[in-house]
Structures are given as C-alpha cells and as structure tokens.
Amino acid sequence: MTENVLKVENVTMQFGGVLAVDNMNIEVNKGEIISLIGPNGAGKTTAFNVITGVYAPTNGAVYFNGKKIIENHPQGKMKKLYQGENNGKYSSVLAPTPDKITKLGIARTFQNIRLFKSQTAFENILIAKHLRRTSNLFTATFHLNGKEEAQMREEAEELLRILGLEDVRDELATSLPYGKQRRLEIARALATKPELLLLDEPAAGMNPQETDELTAFIARIRDEFGLTIFMIEHHMDLVMEISDRIYVLDFGKPIAAGTPDEIQNNPRVIEAYLGGSVDE
C-alpha cells in the first residue's frame, strides 16, 4: 500500500450547536486525485478549512506524510466522538496557523477567488514565493539576495509559462477573464511548492468547455508537478472523470467513499445528492 499523504482522523468541527463536520475520516494517497462531494452546506469547505488550519477542529487529528500536524482531543462532552489512538486521554492541542500548514507543503485555492487584486498576475505568483525565501529582512531590503530574487522571478515566469498565463503577465489580477483567474489561483498555489494541492471548487462558474479544459489541466499539473490533489467539486463530469476515489459528505457526515463507479451506484449517495443525474 502506498503511503498516506493526508490522513484526516475523526475530525469534528462544531460551531455552537451546528455540527459542520461530524467525525470525518479521509485518507489521501500519494499521486491520487481525490474528490470531496456533497450537497450545499454539507461541510466540505469547512473540512478544507480545518485541514489548512483556518479552524482548529473541535475534535480529531490531521496527519500529513505520517506526521501529526493538527490535533485536538477535548475532554468532556465531545470526548466520546474520538476513537483514535489517543482515545480517552487528553493530549495537547496542535493548532498551527494556515501559513505553517502551507509551509509544510499543503497549498489551497479558494471557492470565491481570492487573488491579490492590486497586483499583476506575475506579482501574485511572486508573492507566493516569499514563503520559500532564505533571505531575512536586512538582506532583502538592501538587495543582497540578488541570486535568490532572480531565481524567484525565474520560477514565477516558468509557472506562468507552464500554466499558459504568460500573455497576461503584467495585467492586474482582477482584470483577467474568469477562467484565467482560476488558473492564476492554481499557479499561485503551485508557487508555494506544495506536495498536496487542495482545490476548492476549481470549476465553479465554468461552462462545459472550460470544465473539460480544466479536467485535462488538473491531470496535467498532477503529473508535471508530482502532486497529490484533493478537491471539492460540483461538476460531476469532472469529478467522475479524473477522481481516483470520491468521498461524499452529507450534513457533515461522511456517507460514502469509493471509486467513481461505486459512488455512482451507491443508493445512499443517489438519495442524498446525485438525485437523477446519475442516469445521464
């Protein structure tokens, strides 16, 4: 069996009385494309936010390449939900901020595009390179890091080229067409040199043709950058075509997991989410 890149263990996320994510378990293996689907409000983005450190989970742990990166095992009422290795004993809270998670090698894109709007496409990518700097404030200010700066710029140029954005290099990010903004967001995430890429609805608002292009694009970057991809998506064509495995969430609860074929024929999934569309 290949190694888990990402393992989500018994993660529960509770906001007041709302259980956004309820005891979720996910395993993502190296090189896979995994999709997370579910009706609106099922807790998919919340799950992403837990994995990327935006929210500290109410309970559970997240492992990246076998190393525990996020953990919270509360005592009291929520305790019984946790059935992992530390069941019953209180362990320390591990709640890194999103920048630390990104530094470990998990990059993400956003459902509603969040580019740096006053910056050009090129600068957007360059900003993401800041993370892997070796220069400090002093050397950067007095431009003593010329070599590194040149390398950053070169890598950013190359990303633009690979992702087919070189013609919009100096355009403001917000003035780009929608499809290119999505692509730029992926380029920016790739600039942080991730191992695992989390895509939050990369095809949202795209027409069928653009979705087809995106499907090929995602498969291509997976191969080219040696990535593992975990994505949330609503376009079933895309999901069924490129996913190795699919997880289905409904009201925060994972209701099914398996290959696209299994999911399409799973009665619970059909009931909860796919409705008639499985017959297409």
Binding site: D99, F116, Q119, H130, L131, R188
Partner: peptide, 22 residues
Amino acid sequence: STYGRAFKAIRDDEVAAEAMGI
C-alpha cells in the same frame, strides 16, 4: 523587496496571504 510584496499581499487579502504562507 520580497517583504514589501508580502506586505502588499496582506493589504489586499489577509486570508489569501496567510494561505500563501505569509
């Protein structure tokens, strides 16, 4: 410098800046 770019990123979008490892 690269720090200046990071500052501008924070100005434009804190959430995205943090997700980019700043």
